[in-house]
């Protein structure tokens, strides 16, 4: 079990609704805590992580800030529709980033879609996202 959502592992952000050059979405999957991705305003914001191959997700760890409501969706294939995995409402924390863990229940997924439905402020940041799981042999 290892972090699937790492750029070294081949994961890619194929879609992100906000893109600031200084804080690109890649900061989420670079495995570093001090880089982050910011949203540019408006809600809902989302980003999609594509894994190299079909994987089964165990848990998802996300470290963010100012996020209020979060929704996770998976799709096993590019053409398939996304199925909701989980919806969570985070607590506001002023001094430190929020940290959440969502169980994946070993769902098989090729793409992971994270939707930030609302936030506590105009902008929010995601420092890191870790997807723990195994690669599936299809």
């Amino acid at each position: 079990m290892f972090d699937l959502a790492l750029s070294e592992a081949g994961a890619q952000i194929i879609l992100a609704t906000s893109s600031d050059d200084k804080y690109p979405p890649e900061n989420m999957i670079d495995g570093k805590d001090d880089t982050f991705w910011t949203t540019c305003g408006l809600y809902p914001q989302e980003f999609i992580i594509k894994f190299t191959s079909l994987v089964s997700i165990n848990t998802i760890q996300i470290s963010c800030y100012n996020v209020k409501k979060l929704k996770m969706e998976v799709s096993s294939d590019d053409n398939q529709a996304f199925k909701t995995l989980a919806e969570k409402e985070l607590q506001p924390s002023d001094s430190a980033p929020q940290s959440e863990e969502i169980s994946g229940r070993n769902v098989k997924a090729m793409n992971l879609r994270v939707v930030i439905e609302s936030g506590y402020d105009h902008f929010c940041a995601v420092y890191k996202i870790c997807v723990h799981g195994n690669a599936e042999r299809s």
Partner: peptide, 18 residues
């Protein structure tokens, strides 16, 4: 104003990890 707000937020985000 909004832009300033954004800059502030970004600073704030940076401050957490710095």
């Amino acid at each position: 104003e909004y832009y300033k707000l954004y800059q502030e937020k970004v600073e704030l985000f940076k401050a957490f990890v710095a």
